[in-house]
Design a protein around this nucleic acid. Structure first.
Lengths: 221, 221
DNA sequence: AATCTGTGTAACACTTGTGTAACAACCGAT
DNA sequence: ATCGGTTGTTACACAAGTGTTACACAGATT
């Protein structure tokens, strides 16, 4: 899951970014509204955490600009001033959720996960499928034989993204974009290598190859 | 689906072309207005993606010229300058849709698919027919017996085109033109070979031969 | 410091999609 | 019936795309 964190507090920003990375997100951190708007335009984030108190543009303006361009990314607003009117403004500008500072990291995390689940819900999406269950808290996976494996960070990020987009052809480039934060995707076979590692854990049936197009997580044909 | 991409940005153009090809389009990329107009005159595209900021002619002029010649191809306008007046001008010149840069590839794709569906709508068209359902997300097909088959790139492109033009006689040349981007269609039996492969998957009834004229996808006579 | 673990790269082996070619079967007209 | 052209069928070669393994490096852990 690729996440944009917009936070200008020099203490809070990096710390949050680090914690989120540890939880398996690919995090880009920016501290100004202009940067935020630019990044959101350029990169297909899965979610944006947006602080309202920014030095240049207001976070609300950034959000409004995105929405007017048709960018429907999930946005969670973060702000110190927790008053009622502002909350309404935030939702009217197109925010999906709202969290006042100070907050507990766990609560932020839960809200992020809720938003991601909601936005990916086609009919039925959960982090299970094809006999596989993903345990988000432990970053581990349980295969068809009820064997539990602990996943490394990258394995987890890849599998999670694929499971949230099951039965969809995902190109290697798309996967790269959502799993890494910068990573100039030149000619690398990382995805292939990690797909192999996942198949070794989950069995070969769970991820199909669409030659020339990408990979599909889902039940066998 | 054969698509003309008119884009002079040397970074964006090739990347977009590649992504679109991966999604099953036959893409011709040109970077000048003169080339664009010529290609649009010569080749029956299913859709044109037209950047307005070109070095020679304006994209708007290209579009106006096409329309004045009676070329009604679907045109999606793409431009960096996202202002209101220009949008109006674009629609007045005969554009079918409009997308401001920067944009997310997914959004472009959705708009393209919407345009294609819209322009092919006879009474009822969806990507189903004759007991066959095409799953665009997985690029696979489900036959009358509910068996799912994974299609290769070329199989998918051919079947998709035929299904969007069901109950229409499609000559081998027409099919070639809409499935391949260049492909000097000398004497090749590619289409015959792929029709055979599709029939092997779907059964023989689904695609009829019109001797000397072409093939028809649709329910049996 | 020494070790371990996760990560990504590089090299090579392998598989598959693709289009061509050759031939067989078919159709429709004479 | 026969003939000529069109289409069906199969097998094959090639290239591009993937799979697989081993390894080097870096950061964390001890």
């Amino acid at each position: 899951m690729r996440l944009l964190l917009v936070e200008d507090d020099p203490a809070l920003g990096p710390r949050l970014a680090k914690d989120l990375k540890r939880k398996g997100f690919a995090v880009d951190l920016v501290s100004t509204g202009i940067d935020a708007e630019y990044m959101g335009d350029e990169i297909p984030y899965d979610i944006v955490i947006l602080d309202l108190g920014l030095p240049d543009l207001s976070g609300l303006d950034v959000l409004k600009n995105w929405r007017s361009k048709g960018n429907n990314v999930s946005v969670l607003i973060l702000t110190a001033r927790d008053d009622w009117q502002e909350r309404v403004d935030g939702f009217q500008a197109g925010a999906d959720d709202y969290l006042g500072k100070p907050f507990h990291f766990e609560e932020l995390l839960e809200r992020i996960n809720a938003l991601i689940r909601r936005s990916h819900v086609k009919p039925d999406t959960e982090t299970s499928g094809a006999g596989i269950r993903l345990d988000d808290r432990r970053q581990s996976v349980i295969n068809q034989l009820d064997q539990e494996y602990s996943l490394t960070g990258t394995e987890y990020r890849l599998l999670r993204y694929m499971m949230l987009h099951k039965n969809e052809v995902l190109s290697k480039q798309t996967l790269t974009e959502h799993i890494y934060d910068d990573h100039s995707d030149k000619d690398s076979n990382v995805i292939e290598v990690y797909v192999r590692r996942l198949r070794k854990i989950l069995g070969n049936d769970v991820i199909q190859t669409k030659r020339g197009q990408g990979y599909v997580f889902g039940d066998k044909l």
